[in-house]
């Protein structure tokens, strides 16, 4: 792990015309001085960050540093945990999602989420993908719905494996297939932003590689934020990397620079595997 930057495959090197630093791209999510509390315990301290649109941003950092917590503040998933509190602003398209009167359901429709442990519903493959489309009333006819389901399964690179068994239970799929199904399910409602919390941590190397390829192919259409424990993975799939430590954002910048030339000592120690 010490020589992580030399093992970075070509894929992670940003294209020449991509601006290097975050503030030079259109902003999808603008977080201003965010604090987050579980009861009296502060889990996030004063986080400000601008997440660029149509790039992949990776959150890295040791276990318990608040990556998941931060990710979940971006679609207000933490709302369902009793006793939590948020301070600060999260602007998406210029609107603060924590402003009173925000339609949380509409927000979650625009900011999709894929969880660490795949969580397909105990329904058929088709019904899993159709679920979000149905409850949000996004299609008008059965034909349109079927088209949307196929399209989403194709985007998630799982169509070929399931097209003959759409009406079988989703629980009969392998772990890697289930995770791609969950990605398809999230894509089906056509979010603008896709949040992924360690989407490959429970998968074997081959399934992991498929998910990474998928992330790479999705970034032209979506703004993607991914939490990962695996630094090679962050280096391979992301354009920007944010390093968290004890609830604080220590450093944020182009992935290439974070891994080869970090400005902070803590970041350097972490990416070179000296702790965490």
């Amino acid at each position: 792990m010490t020589l992580v930057h030399t093992s970075v495959p070509a894929l992670a090197v940003p294209p020449r015309d991509a601006p290097l630093e975050p503030w030079q791209r259109p902003v999808a999510i603008d977080v201003e001085r965010l604090n987050f509390f579980y009861g009296a315990k502060r889990a996030l301290e004063d986080i400000s960050v601008r997440i660029s649109s149509h790039l992949v941003t990776a959150f890295i950092g040791p276990s318990g540093c608040g990556k998941s917590t931060f990710l979940r503040t971006l679609n207000r998933m933490n709302d369902i945990i009793p006793g939590t509190r948020v301070e600060g602003k999260v602007l998406i398209e210029g609107r603060d999602i924590y402003a009173p009167g925000t339609d949380v359901v509409a927000l979650r429709r625009r900011v999709g989420m894929v969880f660490q442990k795949s969580n397909p519903f105990p329904k058929t493959i088709f019904e899993n993908v159709a679920y979000g489309v149905r409850i949000n009333g996004l299609t008008r006819s059965r034909a349109e719905l079927e088209e949307r389901v196929e399209e989403s399964l194709q985007s998630a690179a799982i169509w070929d494996e399931v097209k003959d068994r759409l009406h079988d239970s989703a629980l009969a799929l392998s772990g890697g297939q289930q995770q791609r199904l969950c990605i398809a399910r999230a894509l089906a409602i056509r979010p603008e932003i896709l949040l992924m919390d360690e989407p490959a941590s429970a998968l074997d190397p081959i399934a992991t590689q498929r998910i990474e390829e998928l992330i790479y192919s999705l970034k032209s259409s979506y703004t993607i934020v991914i939490v990962t424990h695996n630094m090679q993975q962050a280096a391979r799939v992301s354009d920007r990397t944010a390093f968290f430590w004890l609830g604080r954002l220590i450093e944020y910048g182009a992935t290439d620079r974070i891994f080869t030339n970090p400005a902070e000592k803590l970041t350097e120690d972490y990416v070179t595997g000296r702790f965490g």
Binding site: M77, V105, R108, K117, N119, F121, I135, N136, C182
Partner: peptide, 23 residues
């Protein structure tokens, strides 16, 4: 996690309960 999955797709609480958790 099943309930969270439904909420993350834009389901209201009641909807998540009756279409995912109860089934």
């Amino acid at each position: 996690t099943l309930r969270e999955g439904a909420l993350a797709l834009g389901a209201t609480r009641a909807r998540a309960v009756f279409t995912v958790v109860v089934p």
